[in-house]
Write a protein that binds this DNA or RNA. Structure first.
Lengths: 221, 221
DNA sequence: TACCTCCTTACGGGAACCCGTAAAGGATCG
DNA sequence: CGATCCTTTACGGGTTCCCGTAAGGAGGTA
């Protein structure tokens, strides 16, 4: 089983449980941190001392607070960690239902395990630890189906820009100007309309209100 | 300190930590359940046996799964529990940022403690336990500010109906018909427009998209 | 009853949005 | 270089939405 594990999780309550789970599995050499920056520091120091970590268990969403951080979310942390230690195993522990970014990283083998915070998450975490230790990938059952649902519509960067502008209260007729200023193309009103229609069509919506709420709910914007 | 505590929390990881926190505080007579229905059953049985619980610690959001439940969320559970045991203390442990319903119940003294799942939630839970035991109410620091923000606009039942219809993809001109069918008054297009404008004005929005996303985010619809 | 107030409803002009069609621009390939 | 295909843009009409004004109705008071 893993020997040395680092836990990055800002919620104290979740952090305690992960520690306890590891402890019950006989992993005693664990370190827990509440900030991404601290996690990277500890990993770097461990490499320097020739005692690098085997595994990183990290959340995705970290809340901002008074102490400003360089790295503000788990995905950025993973990228940074992989730069300094490409062979480290990574298990992601997240409350988010679905996210295109997580799925992408999972497919790109940046992530070895994916556990969704849900009813049986403790058991799923134990399964993930076992599986990942055997150099296989793991994802909890409930997160699997979301990846499939995900395929309903693949939002492009352009799509997200438009929806974000809508969410910010920009009218459609003002959008071409905004997009041009930010060097985003296409930028014409027609393209915006066409794209909005396509998104609504695919997702079975009739109004922009639904589209914006949907994207907001899924954390795209 | 409390003698007998019931924990209702569907996430295994969170549940473990709460148990551990209680254990560390010297509370050993704890029972944990993953479903609201089970929670109510245990409380009823404890009363029947003359050994009722002192405290209920519960989440708000419970995920649906294969086993269908009568009570599906924490607020309903609290109401049901208070019917059979009005003097039980209640601490709510929730990830939700803000919710008009929670705030209402807190003000109505249905809830004694409110801890938001966040960075220092473990410590906040310990503080809540101490404070509530002394017959005072507690809410974690980060949840306090949300209750204030809340007051920006008091949504009427009518407001919520309109926004809900928007979210369902109903066009404004179809709404009068819908509202009349459900005996909701006023029902004219003018009234709907006027009300939407007022809401947007108060909240500083320019577009319905923002309004719908806002209400969705706060759990009003 | 007359008068006032508050809320609801009705209506109309103008703006924004929806939708289909057609032209313009770019990329590829023979 | 021209032909073809695809994407982007431009335009026009029809609809919905926005917003101000005015008429109708319910309730309270003299």
């Amino acid at each position: 089983m893993f020997k040395k594990v680092l836990i990055a999780e800002d919620h104290e309550i979740a952090n305690i449980s992960v520690q306890k789970t590891l402890h019950d599995l006989g992993i005693h050499n664990t370190k827990y941190v509440y900030y991404c920056d601290h996690a990277l520091t500890w990993i770097k120091n461990a490499i320097r001392d020739g005692e690098s970590y085997d595994l990183l268990i990290t959340d995705i969403e970290f809340e901002d607070d008074d102490s400003p951080q360089e790295i503000k979310d788990g995905l950025s942390l993973i990228k940074a960690v992989k730069m300094v230690q490409p062979d480290i195993k990574v298990i992601v522990l997240t409350a988010k239902d679905r996210s295109a970014l997580i799925n992408e990283m999972f497919r790109d083998n940046q992530i070895d395990g994916l556990v969704r915070k849900a009813r049986r998450d403790g058991q799923h975490l134990r399964e993930a630890l076992q599986t990942v230790y055997q150099h296989r990938t793991y994802q909890s059952p409930d997160s699997k189906k979301f990846i499939q649902e995900q395929n309903s519509h693949e939002f492009t960067q352009f799509d997200l820009h438009i929806v974000k502008l809508l969410y910010e209260g920009i009218s459609q007729k003002e959008m071409p100007e905004y997009l041009q200023q930010r060097d985003i193309r296409p930028s014409s009103l027609s393209s915006i309309e066409k794209r909005l229609n396509l998104m609504k069509d695919v997702l079975g919506f009739t109004k922009n209100e639904q589209l914006v709420a949907h994207c907001k709910e899924l954390g795209f914007i």
